[in-house]
Amino acid sequence: MAVRQRAIFGSEITYVVLDRHWRVVKPIEEYLEYLRQEKYSPNTVRAYAKGLALWWSMLEDRSLDWKRVDVQELARFKQRMLNRGTDPTVVKMRPAKPAAYSTVDLALTSVLSFYRYQAIVADIPAARQFYMHINGGTAQARSQYASFLGHIKGGQNRRVIGRRRDPKSPPPFLTPRQISVIKDDAAQFDPVAVQWVGDLRLRLFWTLLEETGLRLAEALLLQHGDWQPGTGATALIDIQPREDQRRRLRVKNQQYRRIYVSDALDNLYGEYLFSLVDLGLDIADSDSVFVNLFRGEFGNPVWPETIYDWIKGFRRRHPLLPAKWTPHWFRHSHATALLLAGVPEHVVQRRLGHSDIQTLMTTYAHVTEDAAMRAAADWKTLADRWRAVE
């Protein structure tokens, strides 16, 4: 069967698809290279490579030419995905739970995008013949897989295989009290010793996520030059379009934005800087804000795995908190607090970095309508500590 294989070219981590004989599938590789050159997210390349590997496996199992398929094969692929990789004609003694529709839809999207590329960008003869047909050609010129590429018409993507969405649940969040427990577990200030006890770096990390709503990648990609201390003015952070292939981190949409932060967060950052100097680190503007101090190579940027390993230990120490919380819950908590505190939607949109305000309104539509959420915690007190008005 075809497989998706992780590959490293210099410092770049990417993915290729290998057939059953462990050879690179050339048409898929050309398409993936096109995505890389067009600066698609590495996560998108990885997901599309996975979907195309599953598609190629089905073609190999059925001895089909990728250029000679029809809509029936796409329907079979969809059912095979729902059946978790098993041919839909096979009757299982113990049927597994169907795959999530979001997973199936992503695989279908990768396949349809691949064929669109072959028809329009690569301009292969059969695809070109079909594309001419749907834009005014004759029925006799129709290729054998025209029905399969029926979603390409007039520059629009129109699916010929229906899709379903999983029921959309409200995004999970942490209450102010739960956030305090997480921060205090990382580090607390000892008034007797007049110093921080614990991991001040992680205390800063969680406080930063709480107050800014940054994504994990955005926080770990921060450099000291991005943080503008509030020396006579309001402190701020510049989120730069940046990525790190080795750590599999990338600022989403590669968009710049500016976030103003409170004096309390800025002061905490200053204390963290002093602690780094005390440990003997030379700090430059191009250095990562969050670096290894207790594990890994000292002074090197923190990897996401370090954060998740800490969370595992925290869950053992605090079993009563939500068992499956992740750093992204801080982002949802930030948006929830701002909206419940009455901050205008367009301000929240800019702060979170959503390209479209509709994304914000769709994701958090339940927030302002849920009276019980307003009573769950004093969200306004929490949000008033932040500089959210820009």
Results as ranks from 00 to 15, higher is better:
317 R>F: 03
241 P>K: 03
244 D>C: 11
18 L>T: 02
22 W>G: 10
345 E>C: 04
178 Q>L: 06
349 Q>A: 07
323 A>K: 14
173 F>K: 01
156 Q>R: 12
314 F>Q: 05
372 A>V: 13
24 V>Q: 13
223 Q>P: 10
206 W>C: 02
256 Y>A: 15
292 N>C: 13
373 M>G: 04
180 S>G: 15
253 N>R: 15
35 L>G: 03
290 F>C: 04
5 Q>W: 08
170 P>M: 02
75 A>D: 01
47 A>M: 04
252 K>Y: 09
291 V>R: 07
308 Y>W: 12
247 R>A: 14
255 Q>C: 12
42 P>A: 03
346 H>T: 00
166 D>T: 15
132 M>H: 13
104 V>D: 00
74 L>I: 06
30 E>L: 04
134 I>L: 08
344 P>K: 10
16 V>F: 10
381 T>H: 05
34 Y>K: 08
48 Y>H: 03
165 R>A: 07
196 W>H: 05
267 N>Y: 14
82 L>G: 00
65 D>I: 10
155 G>F: 02
215 R>I: 08
164 R>W: 08
220 L>H: 03
150 G>K: 05
342 G>H: 10
161 I>Y: 06
59 L>T: 13
253 N>P: 03
151 H>D: 13
253 N>K: 14
242 R>G: 12
322 P>H: 05
95 P>G: 12
236 L>S: 14
153 K>Y: 15
337 A>M: 11
370 D>V: 04
380 K>Q: 13
50 K>I: 06
121 V>Q: 13
288 S>M: 05
357 I>F: 06
204 L>Y: 02
29 E>S: 11
210 E>G: 00
56 W>T: 00
294 F>G: 07
159 R>L: 08
210 E>D: 07
26 K>H: 09
326 T>L: 05
44 T>Q: 08
30 E>C: 09
379 W>G: 00
15 Y>S: 05
237 I>Y: 06
331 R>W: 11
322 P>N: 09
8 I>N: 09
179 I>Y: 04
243 E>M: 11
57 S>F: 11
133 H>F: 09
207 T>A: 01
360 L>A: 00
359 T>K: 01
91 V>T: 15
158 R>Y: 06
161 I>N: 11
214 L>F: 10
273 L>P: 04
304 P>S: 02
286 S>D: 12
22 W>P: 01
188 Q>H: 10
325 W>D: 01
147 S>P: 02
201 R>K: 07
189 F>D: 00
265 L>P: 12
315 R>Q: 12
296 G>C: 07
363 T>K: 04
283 I>A: 07
190 D>T: 01
218 E>L: 12
98 P>A: 13
183 K>I: 15
256 Y>I: 06
326 T>M: 05
47 A>Y: 05
368 T>K: 05
271 E>I: 04
230 G>F: 08
120 I>F: 05
126 A>V: 08
99 A>P: 03
192 V>A: 12
249 L>Y: 02
164 R>I: 07
89 T>V: 06
10 G>P: 07
92 K>H: 14
29 E>N: 10
156 Q>F: 13
54 L>P: 00
294 F>Y: 15
329 W>E: 09
225 G>C: 01
5 Q>F: 07
342 G>Q: 02
207 T>C: 02
156 Q>H: 14
